[in-house]
């Protein structure tokens, strides 16, 4: 169940309605539709590849359990990212995140590899900048990181971010704006350090 006869996809609400009426197997459609983005959202928040998978699976399970509470007039995406966000924040609270992004260098997962027609020098620069941005994310306070990831990775509007986090518009504006500046300062500082060496 993914494609309708006329070639259009079933909407989230179509699928949810079917799951609610007992076709539990169709929940698979939801998992397959969102798993990649959920896992990568969680991964950017916690920096641990294996835990990101576990947390995301738990999130989908919770989404299934709470599906009765989902009302069709709210957006399904806000609903699922709210669940994923809550589990992620709980995890961060408990774990005190000791190994943020440590796997990045170990496994090469999530590492940025520049493509396109660029010189080796530009390539090194880009990789270096990407590493620094990633480390910079780690150094942000959790709410700034969450706001930036919702905005930049998931491309959410401030309104949608408000739906997921429950934050006010001014709070979101401040978190995102300060997050960008902090990240910029971090990268510039590290960049200088690299040059000086």
């Amino acid at each position: 169940m993914t494609i309708k006869k006329n070639g259009t996809e079933f909407s989230d609400d179509d699928v949810i309605r079917s799951v609610k009426s007992g076709n539990i197997k169709n929940f698979e459609v939801i998992v397959n539709r969102y798993k990649r983005r959920i896992v990568n959202f969680v991964y950017r928040m916690i920096g641990d590849y294996d835990e990101a998978q576990n947390i995301s699976q738990e999130a989908f399970f919770q989404i299934y359990r709470k599906i009765g509470k989902y009302k069709e007039n709210s957006t399904f995406q806000s609903f699922i990212y709210t669940v994923a966000k809550n589990i992620t924040l709980n995890y961060l609270k408990k774990s005190k995140r000791i190994t943020f992004f440590s796997q990045l260098s170990a496994k090469g997962e999530g590492e940025y590899i520049p493509s396109g027609d660029i010189t080796p020098d530009e390539k090194i620069q880009k990789v270096e900048r990407n590493k620094m941005v990633t480390r910079g994310l780690e150094n942000l306070i959790i709410n700034q990181r969450l706001a930036l990831i919702l905005k930049i990775y998931l491309g959410f509007s401030y309104k949608k971010i408000a739906e997921v986090t429950g934050w006010s518009q001014p709070k979101i504006e401040t978190l995102i704006s300060r997050g960008k500046v902090n990240l910029k300062n971090y990268v510039n500082l590290q960049g200088k350090g690299v040059k000086d060496v």
Partner: peptide
Amino acid sequence: ISLGIAEIRDV
């Protein structure tokens, strides 16, 4: 900065 975040490769 935004590009840097957007460019983190998906796992």
